[in-house]
């Protein structure tokens, strides 16, 4: 039972992790993207459509990333070039994505695809406990194991990461050194959208293996909340995403085990968890925020 919950946590948390990692990059660069849910939806449909047309789920991942990147590019144009309100732009793009994917996705609802299947890691998957929890999943789960530390390393140990973080902390410093803040933010936002798109594609071509309108069902918003309580740190994103995955999978395993718990209450667990963490960390989350993000919060208060 514990193994079922933890294996489910890894599978279910993966899409949230990709989206959370993407949003971390974007916010580290000073851009909040509430359209993450929309980027995941586009990624889910893009991934599904490309997989359906080509028969190759790896091309589907690429399609999902492109679709997510495209939506975030629109966000970047609005908030970086046009300096529009980040919250308004993100939410509007989410609703746009919801409508657009529902419209164009209809023909894929009944279509079957060649989806990702679990690839047990030889040897490792045989280990009792650890094997089924960590090493009996689809390839995108394994890539996520690597993605979180790599993104941490890029953000905190490389020049590229320094540029992104400076765009989010101290734009003057970038300008002094002759870099374009706008260019850096474009890159960070689009990269974030691409990762959210991969997260969406994970749901449609590796997890549920179906396309249906609004199939992300709030996981993108969970990812945005996750970024705050992971304090913009990719490693904590990884832990937090699996925690959410565990909360989601708990609802399945408890019901299957016949433990009498109200299913609507079980479904609320991830959201209650978010509120609890936000309440416990409180102001500490804001102290860890990139400075430029705090300006976004302040601006939106007055506008």
């Amino acid at each position: 039972m514990i193994i079922d919950i933890l294996a489910g946590a890894v599978r279910g948390g993966t899409s949230i992790m990709y989206a959370g990692l993407g949003e971390t990059i974007s916010e580290r660069g000073g851009v909040i993207n509430l359209g993450t849910e929309g980027a995941m939806l586009l990624g889910a449909l893009g991934g599904y459509a490309v997989t359906a047309e080509t028969g190759n789920p790896w091309l589907g991942v690429l399609g999902g990333a492109l679709a997510g990147a495209l939506l975030s590019l629109v966000h970047a144009v609005l908030v970086v070039s046009r300096r529009a309100n980040q919250f308004a732009s993100g939410l509007t793009l989410y609703f746009l994505a919801l409508g657009v994917t529902a419209l164009f996705g209809v023909s894929y609802v009944s279509q079957q695809i060649n989806a990702f299947t679990p690839v047990p890691v030889p040897g490792l998957s045989e280990i009792p406990g650890i094997g089924p929890i960590l090493f009996d999943h689809d390839p995108l789960v394994y890539i996520a194991y690597v993605a979180a530390p790599v993104i941490w390393w890029v953000l905190f140990r490389t020049r590229v990461g320094l540029l992104v973080r400076t765009a989010g902390e101290r734009t003057e410093a970038l300008e002094v050194h002759g870099y374009s803040v706008q260019a850096v933010r474009y890159c960070a936002t689009v990269a974030g959208g691409a990762l959210a798109g991969i997260g969406g594609a994970h749901i449609s071509i590796a997890y549920a293996n179906s396309w249906f309108e609004n199939m992300i069902a709030g996981r993108g918003f969970i990812a945005v909340a996750l970024v705050i309580f992971a304090m913009w740190n990719p490693i904590r994103i990884m832990a937090g995403a699996y925690l959410f995955g565990a909360a989601l999978s708990l609802a399945s395993v408890l019901q299957t085990s016949g433990i009498a718990v109200n299913q609507f209450a079980l479904n609320a667990v991830p959201f209650v968890l978010t509120l609890v963490v936000l309440a416990v960390l409180g102001r500490r989350t804001m102290l860890a925020a990139p400075d430029e993000l705090l300006k976004v919060f302040d601006n939106s208060r007055t506008t």
Binding site: D4, G12, Y207, S249, Q255, T256
Partner: peptide, 25 residues
């Protein structure tokens, strides 16, 4: 008969999770 709810008429990802759990039981 193990009856599990998704609390939604169509949420494929939750369905996937419920089915995995049922099959594993």
């Amino acid at each position: 008969v193990t009856a599990v709810s998704t609390t939604s008429w169509c949420d494929p990802a939750t369905q996937a999770d419920r089915v995995a759990s049922l099959l594993s039981s």
